[in-house]
């Protein structure tokens, strides 16, 4: 039973995962890894929803998780299309290669 696990622990885990994802987005320069880090952030938010939902004995948290999954899938689809375009043009997945606009 999840009841045995306090909600705070679940939220703390989600918070740690979220920070890892955010750090990945900020530090990594490879577009593929940036997309993976975003996925981690999304899923940590989903985990927080599930944990919160189980505290209130409501299905709402799990339903939000399904929405989050849908969004993550849609974003991955577009993100991977951009990865292909980026590789076509620069033969590299480094996002700094594509960064021309300044100011």
């Amino acid at each position: 039973m999840l009841e045995a696990i306090p909600m705070e622990h679940g939220l703390a885990l989600a918070g740690v995962l979220f920070s890892l994802g955010l750090a990945g987005v900020l530090i990594r320069r490879n577009l593929l890894f940036i997309l993976m880090s975003i996925e981690i952030m999304m899923n940590s938010a989903g985990l927080a929803f599930v944990v919160a939902g189980s505290r209130w004995h409501q299905p709402d948290g799990q339903i939000m998780f399904i929405f989050v999954l849908t969004l993550a899938a849609a974003e991955a689809a577009i993100g991977l299309a951009l990865v292909l375009q980026l590789y076509h043009r620069y033969h590299s997945l480094d996002v700094d290669a594509a960064s021309e606009m300044r100011g």
Partner: peptide, 20 residues
């Protein structure tokens, strides 16, 4: 894509905390 998705994740986590 990268910034908007990050913002969405932040927003979602905030909603999850309020919901909890």
């Amino acid at each position: 894509l990268v910034l908007s998705a990050t913002a969405s994740a932040v927003l979602l986590f905030g909603i999850a905390l309020i919901y909890s």
